[in-house]
Nucleic acid binder design. Sequence first.
RNA 1: GUGGAUGUAGCUCAGUUGGUUAGAGCGCUAGUUUGUGGCACUAGAGGCCGUGGGUUCGAGUCCCAUCUUCCACCCCA
Length: 417
Amino acid sequence: MIQKPKGTKDILPEESYKWQYIEKKIQELFKNYGYKEIRVPVFENTELFQRGVGDTTDVVQKEMYTFDDKGGRSITLRPEGTAGIVRAYIENGMASMPSPVKMFYNMAMYRYENVQKGRLREFHQIGAEVFGTSSYMADVESITMANEIFNILNIPNIELTINSIGCPTCRAEYQKALKTFLQKNIDKYCYTCQTRFDKNPMRILDCKEEKCKELNQGAPIILDYLCEECKTHFENVKKLLTELGIEYKVDPRIVRGLDYYTKTVFEFISKDEGYTVLGGGRYDGLVKELDGQETPALGFALGMERIVEIYEKYNKENMIKPEVPKLYIAEIGEKANNLATILVKKLREKGLNVQKDITEKSIKAQFKYADKIKAEYVLTIGEDEINNNKAKLKNMETGEETEVELTVEDICGHINE
RNA sequence: GUGGAUGUAGCUCAGUUGGUUAGAGCGCUAGUUUGUGGCACUAGAGGCCGUGGGUUCGAGUCCCAUCUUCCACCCCA
């Protein structure tokens, strides 16, 4: 037997309707905020991610699905959505569209990493990006919209944490100060922290090892190193969030693993599952980095698998139901079958979910099947019914039977009551 | 990349100190007298016991390797 590749998942019929529901709710919300969907290729030229996401990040260094195509081009399956969308923004001259440009996406992502809870090699993200505004108002609107997702899906125990990692200028300043601080005791830190020192020193502040935590006491924090502009920006974001009644926690340790972030970064963390379900931030330098005009922008992405998992946990009682057939037409004999086939077709043209047997089952088996697929009504047609042009319509829940004429109108009238 | 657990029908799991043709429940299919679901009963289909080696007269059971799944680290959504 050929099995699916490691880290992939089939979304089966008994599961997919929940995905559709969640996707629909989120997309409706996005629409109200003025976002329009964009779809970009599953694969891009490798260079896009190397430059966009950052050469030194784990995502690029060890998690990309990269291969040469038959023409010798280096191709990579997208590990995240933003780079491709920024590429599309530049390539399609979207800078000439009225600002801000708001776009959302719902796409599969690919990361070669070891699977564990909430973590797959192929996974799905819904995200939203805004281009052409450097205002703190955009940050707040974006966070507000993200926050709203959890409200409309009835998902509690989500904690919003925000931070500002400044612009390249203040960040460089800070990293210098941080490294100076860490340098003194770097040999006393755990092995992982020592390896983080060059690559991502800010991560050290988030280490869970007790000894590292102690050593971190008194370490400089980024917020103290923000330049005037970044500082004001962050203050404004916090002020407006408070104004809106959106609860947040400032966590100076949030770093984000992708190089392109600047200023505001944020994460929505599930306290139950212990993972981040939604993360994002501003990336004012990315469009320019990818050879576009200097364009401030920001966005976020949420993990669908993670959202679905939590959604199910909290919506067991009022879980949305999969759609069931309105009517099943059971039939006996060739003539009845022909009539049933025509009726089913006509009723479906009316937009109804109507089923009939296509396996040549006995009448009894047809009823059993109708019951299993939870059809609301069953209409039985045989020789007599055709002659009288009347048939019994059974309500499968109450068992009640009524006589209806064998016309689309009369059937519709009864099943739609 | 590192560490721990795991793998027997579609699903949940039994399977005795290695010993004949590998089991149950649920699900699936069909039937229980000829045109009516849920309940009950009967029957049937469905397993190279994850894969490949090895030990043995004999392996689902023991050993090695490998893969998968799950969890943790790293990192991330």
